[in-house]
Design a protein around this nucleic acid. Structure first.
Length: 104
DNA sequence: GCTGTGACTTCGA
DNA sequence: CTCGAAGCCACAG
């Protein structure tokens, strides 16, 4: 049963690569993981085993919307805003500007 | 813009 | 242990 943890760990690693003031999308993460399960990524984060070690609030939807958050969408937007990301109506103002790509 | 379907994992019974 | 349902989504109709 290490595979399930492996999946989550990969997600955590990706999140760790994201600097402050930057955000990424679930699709990009899944792509980096080599899968199409954006849902699984979110689900794994939602069930959350490492919320403290995993800033899932830096992950947003492809549309630039914040999406949902275990602690609340408003909390997520608040956190992102606190990092320097401008949030408009629970949406990233300039996603392309704050979007972080997994170069490696 | 909303609804339905697709893909993958985790949780519950 | 196996089956079924849900989930922080994305894409197409």
């Amino acid at each position: 049963m290490n595979q399930e943890r492996d999946f989550n760990e990969k997600c955590y690693e990706l999140l760790n690569q994201i600097p402050k003031g930057k955000v990424t999308t679930y699709k990009e993460m899944a792509n980096a993981l080599g899968t199409k399960a954006w849902r699984a990524v979110g689900t794994a984060m939602a069930k959350n085993t490492n919320l403290i070690n995993t800033p899932c609030h830096r992950v947003v939807r492809s549309d630039g919307t914040i999406g949902e958050y275990a602690l609340g969408t408003n909390k997520k937007s608040e956190l992102l805003r606190s990092e320097g990301v401008e949030i408009l109506n629970n949406k990233i103002d300039n996603l392309d500007k704050y979007f972080f790509r997994f170069d490696a």
